Amino acid sequence: MDFWKAITVLLRRWYVALPAMCLTFLAAYGVYATIPTRYSSTALMVLTMPTSGSYRPANPGDPNPLVNPLLNFDGGLNMTASIMVQILNGPEVAGRLGVRPDGATTYKVNNGHPNPELLISAPFVLIEGTSLSPQDARTIVARVAERAKVELKRRQQVLNAPPETFINLTEMVPPTEPQAERGGKTRPAAAVFALGVMAALGSAFAADSIMTGLRRGAEEAPPERAEAATAPGEKAGSRR
Rank of each mutant, 00 (worst) to 15 (best):
T105M: 07
A33R: 09
A206I: 01
A122L: 05
K108Q: 13
M198V: 13
T106C: 01
D102P: 03
N72Y: 06
P175M: 00
F25L: 13
A194G: 11
R13H: 08
R155G: 11
D136W: 13
I83K: 06
M172K: 15
S41T: 10
W4T: 07
A226Y: 01
M49E: 15
G217W: 07
L169R: 00
P188R: 14
G129S: 07
L201V: 03
G237L: 15
A221F: 12
M45F: 09
A58G: 13
N72E: 12
P57T: 15
E92G: 05
V173W: 08
V67H: 09
G90M: 05
T105S: 08
M1T: 04
P69F: 11
V9S: 05
P114D: 05
P50L: 00
R154N: 13
A200E: 03
P19S: 01
R138D: 01
S121M: 07
I35D: 05
T176K: 13
I83M: 09
A28H: 02
A137L: 05
M84R: 04
L214N: 02
T51D: 11
T8G: 12
G196L: 07
F73N: 04
Y39D: 13
L26T: 09
F73E: 05
P223M: 02
G184E: 12
Y107H: 06
M211S: 03
T51M: 13
L119Q: 15
T170C: 04
A81H: 04
A145C: 12
D62N: 15
M45A: 09
L126S: 07
G112F: 03
L26R: 00
K149Y: 10
A207W: 10
P134A: 06
E146G: 06
T24H: 02
R216S: 03
R138H: 01
L152R: 08
P57G: 13
P116L: 00
M45G: 03
L77Q: 14
G233Y: 11
A206T: 03
K108E: 15
L44Q: 15
L152C: 00
E164T: 06
S238Q: 14
E227C: 04
L152V: 03
A43R: 01
F124R: 12
I140S: 07
A200R: 13
D62F: 15
E117V: 11
V67I: 13
P101D: 11
N160Q: 12
L152G: 08
A104I: 04
G53W: 06
A221K: 12
Q86S: 11
P36W: 10
P123K: 05
L159F: 03
S52W: 02
P60N: 00
G196S: 01
K235D: 14
L18C: 10
T106W: 03
Y29K: 14
R143E: 06
G183R: 15
E151Q: 05
R147C: 12
A43P: 09
P116M: 00
E219I: 08
T48P: 04
Y107C: 05
P19C: 01
N111V: 10
R138V: 04
